[in-house]
Amino acid sequence: MAINKNSNTYIIIYTVVMVVIVGSLLAFLATSLKPQQDANVLNEQKVSIMKAFGEADANFDDMVKIGLVTEGEFTEVAKDDKAGVQAVFDLLGNRKALSEATAELPIFVLEKDGATKYVLPIVGKGLWGDIWGYVSLQQAEDNVVITGIVMDHAGETPGLGAEIATERVQKMFEGKALYNEANEFAVRMQKGGAQNEHQVDAITGGTKTCDGVNAMLAISVGKYEAFLRGAEATAEADTEECACSEEECSEECCGECADECADECCSEEAIVEPVNVEEE
């Protein structure tokens, strides 16, 4: 009995069998390759973070502390907390969730040669699609300075907006202080060329992408402002010498820096009453 290959029954059975075979084949393939693919994505994130730190050849796992920032408070995620670490990297991989996050913001800390650097993920929108990257920051005097930045994009125009992914553009951000005299976030890509020490040259023909970079930096870094300011204050307190010397020990002075120099000069005996110079 010959089968009628153009009958509806034959066609339906044919398609059902085909789809079941193909579907299970692809499902099997996708599941078995998933661990390797995830490892690639994770490795790429780690390499980008190390690049932002300026330590492209160093091993992420040996050097970097992972943390979360909520309302300016830093909590470390322990290395052996597999689920916690995974959650951080999952968030990095999910740009939408990352841009909407307001608490438990991922941050990476690298302590080397006595200096502490922080890397924050940044996400935003360019002209055609998402732009993202990592920015590395360090405390300096009374400001926060960019020590490195890596940026990538989904589909900016080659030669124009896509230049943000090149080393040439990224190098320009190095050493820029985040806040200006008025304490406002001041780093931006300025059309027509940098006008002050906080700005970098925008890309000719890539204005919309540069606007996106500006918004990305202001918004993403802005979320960490409380933390960065807090870290700034601590850095200041650590470095600032105690203002009191033994000669000028006074109640007033001891009140300001009692902790640091209490032992030296603020014991009760050491406090001398200020001499009244208006005795004449």
Binding site: K5, N6, Y10, I11, Y14, T15
Partner: peptide, 9 residues
């Protein structure tokens, strides 16, 4: 075996 009506699919 391919039914010619759905061969492109």
């Amino acid at each position: 075996g391919v039914p010619s009506r759905i061969r492109i699919i």
